[in-house]
């Protein structure tokens, strides 16, 4: 077969398959998703009573104060930025990312332990001292950063370790908080696959909602 005929056949196959797999297939799926599952297809966005979007059911948000159950440490701060000082352009597109620190990297231990330095700007606060100061018994998920930097969950143990602190700040009964944690725990699939996790954003939204009502 001549080069020209071989090439023309390759080009025709390229274009026909492109229309099939890159145009017909995706746009059929987009139309299907928008019509049949509009909530999931648009990012599982949660709205408040006023109809404003407050977050995604699948994505975590940063929480560090004592009024809220705290989320995991994140290298991308859960894709957040101050809109007035967003030089990195995070809010244009959203970001995701991990530390990629090797287990043998001393920087990993520094981040967890914290460091002291003559110049205060160079010192690292450290996850352990932070948790200790907050009176939270440290768990693995609260000192290790997540894979996506957007992890919506903490382990049930990590949530339980924070009950006292939140109960004190909000003047709530600890039993009530325990029940709420169970209500917002996503279990294993079929009770077998994966690990249970407490959805931090949904739990904290429920806390706020309960207290504005009463």
């Amino acid at each position: 077969m001549s080069v020209a005929r071989e090439a023309s056949r390759a080009i025709r196959v390229t274009l026909v398959l492109w229309v099939l797999t890159a145009v017909i297939y995706p746009f059929t799926m987009i139309a299907f998703g928008q019509v049949v599952f509009p909530f999931q297809a648009n990012g599982s966005l949660l709205t408040n009573a006023q109809g404003q979007v407050v977050g995604s059911a699948l994505m975590g948000q940063p929480f560090t104060s004592d009024r809220y159950f705290n989320s995991r440490p994140s290298t991308t701060r859960y894709s957040t930025a101050d809109p007035k000082k967003d030089e990195a352009g995070i809010l244009k597109t959203g970001v995701s990312g991990a530390s990629n620190l090797a287990p043998s990297n001393p920087a990993l231990l520094d981040r967890i332990k914290g460091t002291v330095d003559a110049e205060p700007e160079k010192a690292i606060a450290g996850d352990l001292p932070r948790l200790k100061e907050a009176g939270i018994q440290p768990t693995a998920d609260l000192v290790y950063t997540s894979g996506s930097g957007l992890d919506p969950h903490i382990t049930p143990e990590a949530a339980k370790a924070q009950i006292q602190r939140v109960a004190k700040a909000r003047k709530l009964d600890t039993n009530r908080l325990e029940i709420m944690i169970v209500q917002h725990t996503d279990g294993r699939f079929l009770g077998i696959f994966g690990e249970p996790g407490v959805n931090v954003l949904k739990l904290n939204l429920a806390l706020d909602e309960m207290q504005t009502k009463s």
């Binding site: 977050g55 948000q61 940063p62 929480f63 957040t80 930025a81 809010l91 597109t93 970001v95 954003l201």
Partner: peptide, 15 residues
């Protein structure tokens, strides 16, 4: 882009 729950002066971008 939405304000975060804990600190509304900080916004989150959901890609």
């Amino acid at each position: 882009v939405i304000p975060t729950l804990e600190d509304p002066t900080v916004s989150q971008a959901i890609a």
